[in-house]
Every structure is written in structure tokens, then in C-alpha cells.
């Protein structure tokens, strides 16, 4: 993946697939807040993801995409399911970070499930601990490709 392509690709793809804007809802299911802080740095003036048409929305009802961090903890299992069901179709789920992809360093404990796979269908996995903001943008681009196919199939 070439760094130069990242920026122009993102704007172009969002315009093509979603007619200009992408709404993302962040769901924290028990992360150490590294992935959450990296997601919030995407809105800072240096990366400024809003110029590509991406915004973080406060409600899952307004979202096209869920970015889920953290392996699911026993106290947040229900919250993840309700948020997923509240998001209107068509929707995409991204698993951000090693904890969401496969349990990370914690694995399965009495309070941690070890990955979001058993709970929601995942479109894109972005490994890392935490993944760099550039890696998050690559993940969003990959998700848009798959979203396009889903729209074509008419789900």
C-alpha cells in the first residue's frame, strides 16, 4: 500500500460508493483506550479526516460503519449487540486492533471473550497494538470496496 494513494483514494472512493459522506460510530467493547485514542487523532488538524467526508456520529442510528475496538468484555456484550442491531442496513463492521481481531494479549479470560467474531459479522480486520492512523484509513478504504459489492448485491 502506497502512502501517496491513501488520501486521494479515500475521497474518491467515498464519493463513488456513498455519494460524498461516511458516518462512523465508534464502539468500545473493552479496549485499553490505545485504539480509541488513535481513532480520535484522525480528527485532529494534521490528519483531518473530515475533509474526506468522514465524520464520527453520536448515534448508531445515523451510522454507515461501526468501528469496534476491544475484545468483548462480559459487561459490554449486550451493549455491542444492541448497537449492532440499532444500526440501519446496509452496515459495515470493522475490527480495530489486536484485541478485536483475535483477543490480543488478553485472550479468553473470565471477563473477556477474545475477539468480536462470535458476536457480529466483521468486514475488515485491522491488526496492530494500536494500529497507526494510516492503517485505520487503509481499513476504511478496504471496507468501502466490500460495501460497494454489498450494495450491488442489494442486501
Amino acid at each position: 500500500m502506497n502512502e501517496e494513494e491513501l488520501g486521494t483514494d479515500l475521497k474518491k472512493r467515498i464519493k463513488e460508493v456513498l455519494s460524498g459522506s461516511l458516518h462512523i460510530r465508534h464502539v468500545d467493547t473493552g479496549s485499553c483506550n490505545g485504539c480509541d485514542f488513535e481513532m480520535s487523532t484522525l480528527s485532529n488538524p494534521i490528519y483531518d479526516i473530515s475533509r474526506f467526508g468522514v465524520s464520527f456520529v453520536p448515534s448508531p442510528r445515523q451510522a454507515d460503519m461501526l468501528m469496534v475496538t476491544g475484545g468483548v468484555t462480559s459487561n459490554l456484550e449486550k451493549a455491542l449487540r444492541i448497537t449492532y442491531e440499532a444500526t440501519p442496513k446496509p452496515k459495515m463492521v470493522l475490527a480495530i486492533g489486536a484485541c478485536a481481531c483475535g483477543g490480543g494479549v488478553f485472550g479468553e479470560t473470565y471477563a473477556n471473550a477474545g475477539g468480536i467474531d462470535p458476536f457480529v459479522p466483521v468486514y475488515v480486520y485491522v491488526p496492530g497494538c494500536p494500529p497507526r492512523p494510516q492503517a485505520l484509513i487503509q481499513g476504511i478504504l478496504l471496507a468501502l470496496d466490500q460495501y460497494e459489492e454489498v450494495l450491488k448485491r442489494g442486501e
Binding site: 451493549a79 479470560t109 471477563a111 473477556n112
Partner: peptide, 10 residues
């Protein structure tokens, strides 16, 4: 304690 992952037991 929503993000209680059980680190001490682990």
C-alpha cells in the same frame, strides 16, 4: 468496570 478484562487473574 465495563472494561474489566480480568488482568489480575490473567
Amino acid at each position: 468496570f465495563y472494561t474489566h478484562r480480568g488482568i489480575e487473574k490473567e
